[in-house]
Design a protein around this nucleic acid. Structure first.
Ligand SMILES: [Zn+2]
Ligand SMILES: [Zn+2]
Ligand SMILES: [Zn+2]
Ligand SMILES: [Zn+2]
Lengths: 161, 161
DNA sequence: ATTTATATGTAATGATATAACATATCAAGC
DNA sequence: GCTTGATATGTTATATCATTACATATAAAT
């Protein structure tokens, strides 16, 4: 069975189990606790394969028997983001599973304003112009947010304007 | 009198009146209404010369005799952002006056996590790696968000870690 | 087994943002 | 000038996003 991944189709079941396996291995290697609620949170993000608000994630966690209060979701999401299994899409105040788990990368997103699909793009770190600007200013970059908003291929056909 | 502009010093009074004059001219040319509350909002952003939350802006508008309810600030800020006089810093849910008013540009920010100072950097549009990724995906970019978080020159000296 | 650190559950609250609707002002056309 | 439609503002209420604080539970270290 295939499902949209960003703007493409792909084998969704394999994609989910791959990402979970990688996260498991990563945590085991670093003695991080990949607890049930953290695992379930990643499963939820992977299954939906689009950006989700914290409260939407929370409702799934609640339905799965975990706590129903906001910190349950925010703590699990913070863990996933901190260790690179998920990213926060700042322009949407939403979260999305990482498409390139394991790889050291600067996440960049193409966000459709019509259907809210988010595709994670590969960009060259330090080749986004920011590196030069930072160097000139003596600024030490720790994290970069690169997000483009616009229309995905599908919505360009259906959107009038 | 000089004041920090991003991480540099500059003639702040001239900077404010320049930006206001440019905004006035821009609006006059396009028959946009540069109303008192919109003008005051830009003045507030320019005077502080750092990113400000909508409610912080609102408290100044209230003190200046305008409405005290959130839509007053959000509507004025939306106007300024729409026409390029200000930008929203997505990673902080905050707003900042544009440093290059008039110039067509992709705003990029260097955000200090310690002192919250925001410097707007000049980057080349479409040279941030996103352009290529978007083209490959058939994605039509309408707006880009480029934000770097880290430590400014001053805070690198004082911050232990 | 005891201690210490980490993780989870829950209640309360804070911070950010918008919907809805009434009133006021502006811009044209008559 | 008056009418009309569009734009802008004021205000109430509510929606959405996020954190603090503290109690309890589990895991790791000694
Ligand atoms: Zn990623
Ligand atoms: Zn779309
Ligand atoms: Zn700008
Ligand atoms: Zn600083």
């Amino acid at each position: 069975m295939t499902k949209a991944h960003g703007f493409h189709q792909h084998d969704h079941a394999a994609c989910i189990s791959d990402a979970l396996t990688k996260a498991e291995a990563y945590c085991a290697a670093r003695k991080l606790q990949f607890t049930p609620v953290r695992r379930r949170t990643l499963e939820v993000l992977l299954a939906h394969h689009r950006s989700m608000g914290a409260y939407e994630v929370l409702s799934h966690l609640d339905a799965s028997g975990f706590g129903a209060q906001p910190p349950v979701a925010y703590r699990a999401l913070d863990f996933l983001v901190k260790h690179g299994f998920a990213h926060k899409v700042e322009a949407m105040n939403a979260y999305v599973a990482c498409s390139h788990p394991g790889a050291q990368h600067v996440p960049a997103f193409l966000i459709c304003r019509q259907c809210s699909t988010v595709q994670e793009a590969q960009i060259e770190p330090m080749q986004n112009g920011l590196g030069d600007a930072a160097q000139d200013a003596g600024f030490a970059i720790e994290r970069a947010v690169v997000e483009a908003q616009g229309l995905c291929p599908l919505c360009q056909q259906s959107a009038p304007e």
